[in-house]
Write a protein that binds this DNA or RNA. Sequence first.
RNA 1: GGAAGCUUGGCAGAGCGGUUGAAUGCAACAGUCUUGAAAACUGUCGAGGGUGCAAGCCCUCCGUGAGUUCGAAUCUCACAGCUUCCGCCA
Length: 427
Amino acid sequence: MLDINLLRNDFDNVSANLLNKKVKLDKDYFISLEAKRKSLQIKTEELQAKRNSVSKQIGILKSKGEDVSLVMTEVSKLGDELKNLELELNQVQNELTNWMYNLPNILHESVPNGMNENDNVEVRRYGTPRTFDFTICDHVDLGYSINKELDFESAAKISGSRFVVLKNQIAKLHRALAQFMLDTHINNHGYTEVYVPYMVNRASVYGTCQLPKFEEDLFKLKHNDEDMYLIPTAEVPLTNLVANSILHMDELPLKFVAHSPCFRSEAGSYGRDTRGMIRMHQFDKVEMVQIVKPEQSFQVLEEMTNHAENILKMLELPYRVVLLCSGDTSFSSAKTYDLEVWIPSQNTYREISSCSNMTDFQSRSMQARYKNTLGKNELVHTLNGSGLAVGRTLVAVLENYQNTDGSITIPLALRPYMNNQTVIRKL
RNA sequence: GGAAGCUUGGCAGAGCGGUUGAAUGCAACAGUCUUGAAAACUGUCGAGGGUGCAAGCCCUCCGUGAGUUCGAAUCUCACAGCUUCCGCCA
């Protein structure tokens, strides 16, 4: 959530910034609601103060054994008026915070302006897409001809569309990828491994700001009359680890990494990426999260992007780094780099990781703070990045490492995780 | 699923319905002493919000939500979480 004081003091600048995210703020609405809130709050607190002091007087008078009936009748009249005021104030405040929760994060000055993904800026490239001297297959055909180890048919039968069943060598390759990614981030990049719940409560999804705006993207469950949500990314449980806490300066930065399934309803993406396992309701991801001091967050974003890139480098997959333009930067993010891996069958780069600096946007809703050098409580900055999406990495490996005979060469980095197997082929 | 106990500040732990936002201890921070550190001593020290140029003043918060009362950490109800015992279970 944005800082409401930013709007009170500098509405026009905030408004101009958010316009780049294609969000138009209603100034009149905000100003009138704020005015209403202010007068109501002042009146309410005045009455509360009066009630408090009179009640205190009653206590003092009674202890002296004096008569209190006169004061009692005076204060008892306050009751109804106060109750109504409190109710009204509550409504106005709810409306205001609700409105606030629907405003996106402010963009960093280094983010280029643009409408959509066409305006994103390529920052750098790694590797050269391989030239094939035979007709290539996409991962669906490859997986089918390798003993149906990539099995969409079975998944459709037992669950529906946008699910996949992996078997035997490909299932093992999928597992190897996740293990390899985890180990690399733990051993080379200094992250702490965390195992997290795959269902979280409502407060957690509010904490990382997926709610209230993106409810329809989530899978929702009922448990004991309470809403539970399947995590759309491990970012939610990992980041909420520091919700409602005050951290010590020396604890920062916190670096968490988790491997988890992710669940997304993909509402509104009908017809997009229907073939293959690019867009699934359930996919695995290795997620990095960092909790850092505000002044370091943009430096850390560069580092975290490098951490994700290292996985692709070690797998020797061609990719490029893209700085998202204003219109393509997500709701909670101030700045985002996407990593796009080369997908031969589509003859293009496809998103495989997204690294974002959420600045204090999430920490404000989570109340995640640290005691700074002045001894003041200050909101931390939170960052997250995929390191990487395991399913899409599997796609990339299958397609980039395919051979004329339909077999797949296993990347060197993964062989230790595959009993030193070198090739996946039809058995 | 059944039964009992518990839930207070960063932690531990007091708290007869009335100047209690909360004793005390630890931790933390600042200072004195010390070549430096430790110890000792002195002082500061919960969070969120409103208002104000500011100093300050005010409001809210003792698991969560309702209720009783002029007044609730303290009483009532519901729910949740934790601990222990029984049942079931991977």
